[in-house]
Design a protein around this nucleic acid. Structure first.
Lengths: 347, 347
DNA sequence: TTGAAAGCGCTAACAT
DNA sequence: ATGTTAGCGCTTTCAA
């Protein structure tokens, strides 16, 4: 039998208003009564009806804020697309999304963006932000105060939050190693081009990569590890230099963005037999895979990430979720020429 | 500005009841009035509010039927899981799913299953069924009569329907070929083990496979093509026989189910250097990839297929969708050891 | 053929 | 501190 506010109120011997106050911690209710209602709600398995909620609160939408370091970064556009899809889908259930786009990964900028989202009345936040102690502290503080926090695309260590929605970077790295093991039998001399040693995801991609190479007993050495800071120009320069200095390199592992820059260096150097691999499906990487410069990319379904982060946050605010919410980890998708050049799937 | 039944009624100078009658073709309305309302609805861009609909029609849920040839077939269990997820998620919006499970691919059995679903009052059908003219005819007939039809996992040729939700088998086959091109440089002597020449999906997997081998100028020949009828026992027997007869075979392409049977034959034959590849992530294929008997499988996200088929059907019945609905094609996912043995993603 | 009104589950404003 | 009520958008029933 379905449990409604009405039936709950009846069971507890109080009015619907009181039940509402208890369930949403608003207004004053005698402690004893509150306890009774809460207990009963759990026992009877009360789950609020989204339709009812949406209809009633039509004029007070559920505002969800999203922070994206997307300015000048094509990758995040796909996450934003997913955010928009969720916004459209849940609009008639009372969802409203406030998107805050910033440039780069400056801690202070991100903290201020969060403040501005809160000032606009957001009851939940989806954050793609930096992995620093100050951010972690702020996130914990907000979470403990009751704000729903979803970490999006890139996790922040040591935080309490609703959940993380994004890629499993360790598996992504391991998958690259596994593909390498499948494709090459000769000894590997590897150049690693990372984005930044400060970005958790990039580090995990390298860690997972090495771990899997070791697990499969691949014969390899890391010739060098260089940073591109996700700048194509820098990536090209630094990659080209190392390639020239180390002609034995036969594999380039691009752990960060700036795949385009590395590709240019490979072309400039005329490296035919270098097995290059990278991440994410963007215009640039698609071109490079098509041309055979990069053999494959490992992708993380950014659009789904955006969609599900918003969805999770909405569900949490609407009271649809239980106490413990699992992380949402997107698939680790290998794209070679054959499945990259064909049409893109839904959502 | 948001358009409601109320505002529409006002604009058309009629009552809400009349608008409802027009929009749902129920009850008698003067032709002239109906035309006016319909035109206005389109002009103003009226989209029904799910919340309102769900609440009002609480006692007449949207019944959606699903037909699955899942009896004794592990693969379909994952699709069913997706169906269940959708059912739970949309329950409070008035969705009710009626699942009809049948055994095998007998045309008559499937036709009768469809009848039984309709008899139960289903306003939409999600069908995983056989690709035969009689089914196509029935589907077209139902579609033209206004029943929402979603074809699920396996398409039926020459049909009118809302959309297809499932894998792109051509791309899946091509992806196998692409991986082969990446992993092997020697001449390929290929044995193809298909499920049935009558199943569209299996044929397309073979077609896509060959096309991509040709496109990439791979040096290969097809030693033989045998049918397993998706039976592991038969697959083992027939595969073993061919392997014994043709020691030059260095690649086995398993286009149908019964991967387990082929695996057994490979083990029995002691084929170390045979590069075997197959489809779908199941208990059996996971074991075989882990053991290195099969190098990778190409997967099609069956859980998402079930989920989205139901979702699409629900949206269509609830009037959320426009006139033309695109197919929902799931990702073509390569799973090697490294990304197979790790945790499974959400939804 | 059309209009009017009740009520679905919930929240917010008002009343006690 | 608690109860009562109006109303969100829609469907359905009853009345005209």
């Amino acid at each position: 039998m379905k449990v409604t506010v009405k039936s709950l109120a009846q069971a507890a011997g109080v009015s619907r208003g009181t039940v509402d106050r208890v369930l949403h911690n608003r207004g004053a209710v005698k402690d004893e009564v509150a306890k009774r209602v809460r207990l009963l709600a759990k026992e009877l398995g009360y789950v609020p009806n989204r339709a009812g909620r949406a209809l009633a609160a039509y004029k007070t939408p559920i505002k969800i804020g999203a922070l994206m370091p997307s300015v000048g970064n094509a990758f995040y556009q796909e996450i934003i697309q997913g955010i928009n899809e969720a916004q459209n889908e849940f609009a008639d259930l009372g969802l409203e999304v406030v998107l805050k786009e910033v440039e780069g990964f400056d801690e202070q900028v991100h903290l201020e963006a969060i403040d501005s989202l809160l000032k606009k009345g957001c009851r939940a936040l989806c954050l793609a932000t930096v992995n620093t102690p100050r951010l972690a502290e702020r996130i914990n503080e907000l979470h403990d105060r009751g704000t729903v926090i979803v970490l999006l695309n890139t996790d922040v260590e040591n935080t309490r939050r609703l959940c993380y929605v994004g890629s499993d970077y360790l598996t992504a790295g391991a998958t690259c190693a596994g593909m390498l093991a499948l494709a090459r039998q000769d000894k590997l001399h590897i150049l690693i081009v990372t984005g930044s040693r400060l970005l958790l995801g990039h580090n995990l991609r390298i860690k997972g990569f090495k771990e899997e190479l070791d697990r499969q007993n691949i014969d390899y050495d890391i010739v060098d590890t260089v940073e591109s800071f996700d700048s194509d120009i820098r990536a090209q320069q630094v990659t080209y230099k190392v390639l020239k200095a180390h002609s034995e390199i036969n594999c380039v592992y691009i752990a960060g963005a700036a795949v385009q820059g590395v590709g240019s260096a490979l072309i400039a150097n005329g490296s035919k037999d270098v097995f290059a691999i990278g991440f994410d499906e963007l215009y640039s990487t698609r071109q490079l895979v098509s041309a055979g410069i990069i053999k494959f990319v490992v992708c993380q379904q950014p659009t789904r990430q955006g969609y599900h982060a918003i969805k999770r946050a909405y569900q949490a605010v609407a009271g649809q979720l239980g106490d413990s919410v699992p992380d949402f980890i997107t698939d680790t998708i290998i794209k070679i020429k054959a499945n990259l050049e064909r049409t893109v799937p839904g959502r």
